[in-house]
Design a protein around this nucleic acid. Structure first.
Lengths: 206, 206
DNA sequence: AACCTTACATACCACGCGGAATGTTGCAAG
DNA sequence: CTTGCAACATTCCGCGTGGTATGTAAGGTT
């Protein structure tokens, strides 16, 4: 029998259950009642830790999704000497991850959790829009700045536009996840990543 | 004073109001009550023409969004002799259209209506998933088949993969709309389309 | 030992939802 | 002229929702 009083753990359980609930049903379609049931706690506990449904959504963004983007994209790109090699690794690692996932709960079925919230909530709530904007901006900057550094050390072609290329890469990730969850075909997803990989290769000087 | 009894017109008004409502609030967040108010009719009239909320969403897909894709992509590509020129025209026309739109109600603020529904409803309802899958499939096929015809007449490079290129183009359109509605910057959207245009140019034999 | 704050649990609430049941009226066929 | 059905309008309903008010107990502080 675990400790009765454990606020950190309780908060964590709520956040994890919320993430899953919103991931599957969307934010508006997500149910507080289902969250408390899944987390094995009560509504009183939830509203003790979070002021309301919106704040719960914000917390999922701040404490789950922002770190995920940092893990997958920002840090690898920041640490890398050669940005093209870093992008190669990221795309490869990403594709592998998806293929290993549980098809019922993973990326191919449910899409990108960030993109899902962005599509649903950006026009409806400024708090969501702002946070999601920051996430995409961080992501975007990580790519474009890495490409600029690559241009400075001549490992990236000087005649490409880092900003446009970054926009392109972010869009492809979001778009392929969105369309992929409709077609339910890994092949579609793989095709998109493949073209993205080819495009990345075209960034290295000939 | 208009004709009191006009089922065709009534049905149309309901569909148009539903399209706008779902476009702004999503399907789950969309309200039947708001729809009947906006359409200037009553709930009785709505449920006389449509069996339920889901059927209403299906009708929006079948009678609004499917024709829109046909208009913008399928027919131009089918009629064209040179698929690359057709894609050039489509992208240009599309960008122009968005720049002219009302910022409060248009593509940049609300995203792509098809992609929005796809992201929200695909994992939740098979009826939505099926219809959206058909739309994306038609769209995808229109591009890939046009590219294949272009390869046959040597106006498209023979060493590119039409299927992969089609997947890529569809994804870019969906992704740029999704991310664009977060950043709210036309520049982001324009960057994506620009890279897509460059990519399209790379399809023509050198 | 008394106390007080934090961390929950329980019970309850108003509201808007999608939808059904029923009532009413225009309009065309017989 | 009347009959009948399609095309609505009106009214009502059960339910799940996000959120609150209140109760209670754990555990550190003094």
């Amino acid at each position: 029998m675990p400790r009765v009083r454990d606020p950190k753990r309780t908060r964590r359980k709520v956040l994890e259950a919320s993430y899953r609930e919103f991931y599957r049903h969307g934010f508006q379609g997500g149910s507080i009642n289902r969250i408390v049931t899944a987390a094995g706690i009560t509504k009183g506990a939830l509203f003790h830790h979070f002021a309301g449904k919106n704040e719960l959504g914000y917390a999922v963004l701040d404490e789950f999704l922002t770190p995920a983007v940092n893990n997958w994209w920002v840090e690898p790109l920041h640490d890398a000497g050669d940005p093209v090699q870093a992008l190669r690794n990221i795309l490869k690692r990403f594709l592998k991850r998806i293929e290993e996932e549980d098809p019922e709960a993973g990326f191919l079925f449910n899409g990108c959790p960030i993109c899902n919230l962005a599509v649903e909530m950006s026009p409806l709530d400024e708090g969501f829009r702002e946070r999601l904007g920051t996430i995409y901006d961080t992501w975007h900057c990580a790519i474009s700045e890495a490409l600029e550094r690559g241009q400075a050390t001549a490992v990236v072609r000087s005649d490409i536009n880092p900003t446009a290329e970054a926009s392109f890469l972010v869009s492809i990730m979001a778009g392929s996840a969105s369309v992929g969850k409709v077609t339910q075909q890994m092949a579609f997803f793989r095709n998109c990543i493949k073209v993205a990989q080819i495009h990345v290769e075209s960034l290295v000087p000939s």
